[in-house]
Nucleic acid binder design. Structure first.
Lengths: 112, 112
DNA sequence: TTGACATATTCCCATATGGGAATGTATTAT
DNA sequence: ATAATACATTCCCATATGGGAATATGTCAA
C-alpha cells in the first residue's frame, strides 16, 4: 500500500517541494494561476494540479475574477503542522543546552 | 515523475502518519525496535523500514545495545520544518485578528 | 456566434512507495 | 557450534503520484 492520498492530509500535501513554493508565493496576496506559472517556471497544467491538491486539503482558497482564478494561501491550515513540530521544540532546546554547556566547560581549561 | 524519494527530504519522511507516530514515541527517550512494534501495533519489518527512512534523513539516531538497536528522535532535524511553518505564523495571526475585530464590531450594535 | 484567454482535466507512463511474507544478519545464551 | 533473540533486508504487488501532451471548460472581446 502506498502512502495515503495527498488530498487527505496537509502533511502529505506539503511534502511536495513545488507545493511549498506555491504556498510561499501565495502567502502575501492572492495571485492568478498565470503568475504562479511565471514565478515558479512550471507548466500550467502542473500548477493547476498542485493547486487542486492544495485546495482539497484547504491549504489555499480561490475566488474567480473574470477568467482568472485568484488563489491565496490559507495560513490557518498550516497551523496544525506548526503545532506538531512545536511539540519537539523543548527537545532541540535541550540538545542546544547540552552542546553549549560542553563548549563552556571546554573553554575553561585547568580551572582548578 | 513521482514525488522525490522520502529519504531525500524530512518533509517527505514526515508525510507518513506512522513515521510521525514513531517520532512522537521516540521523542522522550531511546527505545528498542520491539517497543515500537508493541506500541504502534505494526509489523516488525514495517517498523524497521520506517526507521530506516527516518535514519536516512537524520530524524532519528541509533545506537546498538547488545542485540537491540536503540532509536531516538533527533529533534534538531525537525527544526527546519518548524521554521518553515513559522513563516506563516503572522498570516494566521492576521486572520484571527480580522475575525476578532469583526466579532467585536458585531457585538456593538447601534453604537452611534 | 466566433475567437482569444486563462484554467482545469484527462490520458499515458515511469517511478516511489508501504505492506506482507520470507529470508538474511548480528549478538547473546547454552 | 547451535539455538534463540532482535532486527534488517529483499521480493512481490497494488496503488498513488507528477510530468508532458492533448483536450475540455469557462469567460470575455469583437
Amino acid at each position: 500500500m502506498p502512502r495515503a492520498a495527498t488530498t487527505s492530509d496537509p502533511f502529505n500535501a506539503v511534502a511536495e517541494p513545488r507545493r511549498r513554493e506555491i504556498l510561499n508565493f501565495l502567502a502575501l496576496e492572492e495571485r492568478p494561476v498565470g503568475d504562479i506559472v511565471a514565478a515558479l517556471e512550471l507548466e500550467q497544467p502542473s500548477v493547476s494540479k498542485h493547486l487542486r491538491v492544495l485546495l482539497d486539503v484547504g491549504l489555499v482558497n480561490v475566488r474567480r475574477d473574470g477568467r482568472r482564478m485568484l488563489y491565496r494561501t490559507n495560513a490557518e491550515a498550516i497551523r496544525p503542522l506548526h503545532e506538531w513540530t512545536r511539540t519537539f521544540e523543548r527537545f532541540w532546546q535541550n540538545q542546544l543546552h547540552r552542546v553549549k554547556e560542553r563548549a563552556e566547560r571546554e573553554s575553561e581549561p585547568k580551572k582548578d
